[in-house]
Nucleic acid binder design. Structure first.
Length: 476
RNA sequence: GCCCUCGUAGACGAAUGGUUAAGUCGCUGCGCUUUCAACGCGGAGGUUGCGGGUUCAAAUCCCGUCGAGGGAGCCA
């Protein structure tokens, strides 16, 4: 039987890193087993679902390289299928109309809580007579549809991550609502647990791989599979991604959506690489840098961890920097041009070779693409403000003479090369009787306004090509 | 309080009863460099949450305990 897995995001927000990580595991599992990966948009909650979120999710998955084989399917377009299934359960006597009002439910839960009991529905409308129903209808009550869950049932499955997991029926909260209130003749919106099962059956899903926060839904869904006469898929509940504080990562923890990571200058293969490492480890744990395809080859659900993993910016940054440092220069240049344009720099004023030379110069010091904006400022902005340290450097003895000397020599240099620049510096050392370090530091200070930075000769060369070095040498 | 799950350095995590408990990030020292970064070579950091038990031998198996996370919707 071919493996078929799915990612089923709900478009109630941008693509969340937790959803994306679940998508990664599903994708890897599918590829490893030559199976299919399906995208299904769970938009049954019409109140909260929005098309722009769907757009963001699709774009995010695409950006990450998590291509799908089928879909996207939209649950909002499949309502008839779900209603049919609910009707089947009604017909089989496995589901029934419940007229309990929200206020009654609330009162019941309050009482249970006061009693230190877990909140649950007490199945009070399980066996209503026709007269009782008619009376509730006459009151104007709108019934929900509930699925019977027997307290004495024991539900157990072999989780691919956690091993044998067992639940008691009585811990499932009583008979569960599978369709919202409407009227006794017209069925309301089918709910999450119901539609998921119907879809997973219909789409022939063989493994359900989802976050641990869904573990309590699994016994309910297993009961639904049974009631619908279908075989349950295998289940895998992956650990959650936790905030540095150790809680389930949520919007409150700052950056959580994939599009934000993208905007911050992370590169897709690096982000995917890091997410894969959060809760899974390769057979060779020393090899932590890999492509999706490489991970797929190696991916086993057995090697997924059980404990939640705290999100670590330092490690993500390190992985991202590794990708940036090894990226081919033309490709990195394309990325950086985007960053520079966004920063307002005129990348049209310079040549492609110049841009690639600048990229080569900056590449080793990049952690995120966005670092290139600040680091390239001196190469794109003609007016330069000197930093405090640079000012101090320029006030040291002999510095004005050295710089004047170099500026003068530069006028006579027709062919500026790295070797010529070095020669110029050596001449300055000799003629002015100063140490080379003083020349180098002073050059950097006057050319860039800083006392630290990447290779000075290359920096100079880049500025020279723009014709910006002379004026900076001749300041003061 | 109830149900489920999980605890290996600051973080991610390896080790399927058998050397001195891997590796990576971070931290730190040194080297290289005019400098920063990158890179290279070192270092520190652990009573495997805690307490019992089984065994010649326990991170690993059993019992208990503590802590943490998740769940308990007419949300997904």
């Amino acid at each position: 039987m071919t493996v078929r897995v799915r990612i089923a995001p709900s478009p109630t927000g941008n693509l969340h890193i937790g959803t994306a990580r679940t998508a990664v595991f599903n994708w890897l599992f599918a590829r490893h087993n030559q199976g299919q990966f399906i995208l299904r948009v769970e938009d049954t909650d019409l109140e909260r679902s929005r098309p722009e979120y769907t757009q963001n999710i699709v774009a995010g998955l695409t950006w990450l390289g998590l291509t799908w084989d089928e879909g996207p399917f939209f649950q909002s377009e499949r309502m008839d299928l779900y209603r049919q299934a609910v009707q089947t359960l009604l017909d089989k006597g496995l589901a029934y109309h419940c007229y309990t009002t929200p206020a009654e439910l609330e009162a019941m839960r309050a009482a249970q809580e006061a009693n230190n009991e877990a909140p649950r529905y007490d199945n009070r409308h399980r066996n209503l007579t026709a007269e009782q129903k008619a009376a509730f209808e006459a009151e104007g009550r709108k019934p929900v549809i509930r699925f019977r869950i027997e307290d004495d049932r024991v539900i157990s499955w072999k989780d691919l991550v956690r091993g044998q997991v067992t639940w008691q029926g009585k811990d499932l909260g009583g008979d569960m609502v599978i369709a919202r209130a409407a009227s006794s003749t017209e069925m309301g919106q089918p709910l999450y647990n119901m539609v998921v099962v119907v879809d997973d059956i219909d789409m022939k899903i063989t493994q359900v791989i989802r976050g641990e926060d869904h573990i309590g839904n699994t016994p309910k869904q297993i009961l639904l599979y049974e009631a619908l006469g279908a075989t349950s898929p295998e289940f895998s509940h992956t650990p959650l991604i936790l905030s540095p504080a150790g809680k389930k990562l949520s919007k409150r923890d700052g950056v959580t959506s994939i599009s934000e990571f993208q905007e911050m200058g992370f590169v897709a293969p690096a982000l995917v690489n890091y997410m894969t490492l959060l809760g899974w480890s390769p057979t060779d744990p020393a090899k932590e840098l890999f492509t999706l395809a490489e991970a797929a080859e190696d991916f086993e659900m057995q090697r997924v961890t059980k404990a939640g993993a705290k999100f670590d910016w330092d490690k993500l940054d390190w992985i991202n920097s590794q990708y940036l440092h090894t990226m081919p220069i033309p490709e990195l240049t394309d990325h950086l041009i985007g960053v520079w344009k966004k920063a307002g720099y005129d990348t049209e004023a310079v040549t492609r070779p110049w841009l690639e030379q600048l990229t080569t110069l900056l590449a080793p010091s990049l952690t995120r693409l966005n670092n290139a904006a600040e680091q390239a400022q001196v190469f794109f902005t003609q007016d330069l403000t000197l930093g405090e340290e640079a000012l101090a450097q320029l006030q040291q003895a002999n510095v004005p003479e050295v710089l004047t000397f170099i500026a003068a020599q530069l006028k006579e240099t027709s062919d500026f090369t790295a070797d010529a620049a070095k020669e110029l510096i050596n001449q300055a050392v000799k003629a002015q009787g100063v140490k080379k370090g003083l020349v180098m530091r002073s050059l950097r200070a006057t050319l860039t306004g800083e006392v630290h930075g990447p290779d000075l000769i290359e920096t100079w060369s880049l500025l020279q090509q723009r014709g910006w070095d002379r004026s900076r040498l001749e300041r003061g």
